[in-house]
Design a binder for these strands. Structure first.
Length: 425
RNA sequence: GGAGAGGUGGCCGAGCGGUCGAAGGCAGCGGUCUUGAAAACCGCCAGGCGCGAAAGCGUCUCGAGGGUUCGAAUCCCUCCCUCUCCGCCA
């Protein structure tokens, strides 16, 4: 949610953000709704003041006739308050309804365009030249008995899967490596609930319901399966006011993630790439406003370190305006090289890091207070994937496959897997 | 699931329907004293919103929502949550 007070001041910037993101929200009606609500807030305050004065005057002894007149006047003032408060509540509802349709502002460097217009910032590593025909992870998983999609479909439906044998070790090792990296960088390790209230989901800017939702809801409750640990980690800050001295707060959250993938069945969805459930270690950070851009770069750097450690070539994208979620001010994606993807390999998204500035914090009412300051301010919240194990697994299996059909386990994972290779069966 | 108790400021804990955003204590902050510290003493100390350069002024908030009343932390109703005991259980 944007700050309504600065909405009017930065009206053109907000309108530009809406346009560049390809949205159709009405900025001017939001401004008008804010002004109307502000007017009524002032009016309610004024009539409340009159009523309070009147009540104070009634605390002394009054003659019966006086008391009667006093009570009449009191009832009249009460009617005024009730009426104006109802008007204010309606105006605030309208304000909220228009405001929630507006996306965050945009970082000045965000490229124009949509999905295909991301700016490539850099590449790391050379896609490997195979001296044998490389297999994709689905085929590797089948031959090595690491992945069972048929069983997943039988038990839970399409896009569910069983990990088997060494894939289980790899999955856990990828998580452990991420936790170890982040622990060394001062992140607090947490595991989160895998469910969250719809209200929390909504506060983070995700749509918990509706035909196009990516979020599963639990029947007969207001709970949802989380699509990312960003949701419970953001919820952790709801209603909190932190001391400036504790910032930045850096969390590394481990959770399962669930996505309906509604409307995505036509897209690249082979094997583990687009599944309904996976595990993820998520970085979530709360900073002062002036620190969030630098922290965003740091989150990206950590993601790069992780994939470098796994010896996986990747490229870094600065995502274009039309491909950003509403809360994101700017987003970087890492795409790892996947030899089995498309025809002859291609880069596929493995992580992303977003700076959501104060957009989520305002809805969550997540604040901090500067040392000595009277009033608090909203935090800036950022999130980034350390590892989503399903997609990282694709990259590991496909990039580190061997001529004999086995897999070489990246050296950094060996302490966690206890094995250094997966041999053909 | 059954029985009981309770929700007040960072914490503990008072609060005859008006003088209560709220005693007292602890913690915290500032000061006096001290070589330094402790102790003692003095002062400050909930938050949101609005107006204001600021000082400040106004308003709202005592789990949430409704009701009674000229006036509710206080009385009534509904809901939520927490704790204790019992049962079940990884």
């Amino acid at each position: 949610m944007l700050d309504p007070r600065t909405l009017a001041e930065r009206r053109d910037e907000v309108a530009a953000s809406v346009r560049r993101r390809g949205m159709t929200a009405d900025v001017d009606s939001a401004v008008a709704a804010y002004q109307e609500a502000a007017r009524l807030r002032t009016a309610v305050g004024e009539v409340n003041r009159l009523r309070n004065e009147h009540q104070k005057s009634g605390s002394r002894k009054l003659a019966p006739a006086e008391r009667e007149a006093h009570a009449d006047e009191g009832r009249r003032l009460k009617d005024d308050v009730v009426r104006l408060e109802a008007e204010l509540a309606a105006a605030e509802d309208r304000l909220h309804a228009t405001l929630r349709l507006l996306p965050n502002l945009l970082h000045p460097d965000v490229p124009d365009g949509g999905e295909d217009d991301a700016r490539e910032l850099r590449r790391w590593g050379e896609p490997r030249r195979f001296d044998f025909p490389p297999l994709d992870h689905v085929e590797l998983g089948r031959r090595l008995d690491l992945l069972d999609f048929e069983a997943g479909t039988r038990v839970a439906g399409p896009k569910f899967y069983f990990l088997k044998h060494e894939a289980v070790l790899l999955d856990l090792a990828l998580q452990r490596l991420a936790l170890e990296l982040l622990r060394g960088e001062g992140f607090e390790l947490v595991t989160t609930p895998d469910l969250a209230k719809a209200e929390i989901v909504d506060s983070l800017g995700y749509n918990p319901r509706g035909p196009e939702t990516q979020i599963y809801s639990i029947a007969d409750s207001d709970l949802c399966l989380i699509g990312t640990a960003e949701i419970p980690l953001g919820g952790l800050f709801a209603g909190e006011t932190l001391e400036e001295a504790v910032l930045p707060v850096k969390l590394a959250g481990l959770s399962h993630c669930f996505r309906t993938e509604a409307g995505s069945y036509g897209r690249e969805s082979k094997g583990l790439y687009r599944v309904h459930q996976f595990s993820k270690v998520e970085m979530f950070v709360a900073t002062r406003p002036e620190d969030s851009d630098a922290m965003h770069e740091q989150l990206l750097a950590l993601e790069e370190r992780y994939f470098q450690a796994l010896e996986l070539p990747y490229r870094v994208l600065d995502i274009a305006a039309g491909d950003l979620g509403a809360p994101a001010y700017r987003k970087f994606d890492l795409e790892a090289w996947m030899p089995g993807r498309g025809d002859g390999g291609s880069y596929g998204e493995v992580t992303s890091a977003s700076n959501c500035t104060d957009y989520q914090a305002r809805r969550l009412d997540a604040r901090f207070r500067r040392a000595g300051a009277k009033r608090s301010e909203h935090l800036h919240l950022l999130n980034g994937t350390a590892v989503a194990t399903s997609r990282a697994l694709i990259a590991v299996l496909e990039n580190h496959q061997r001529a004999d059909g086995g897999i070489a386990v990246p050296e950094v994972l060996v302490p966690f897997t206890g094995i250094d290779r997966i041999d053909p069966r």
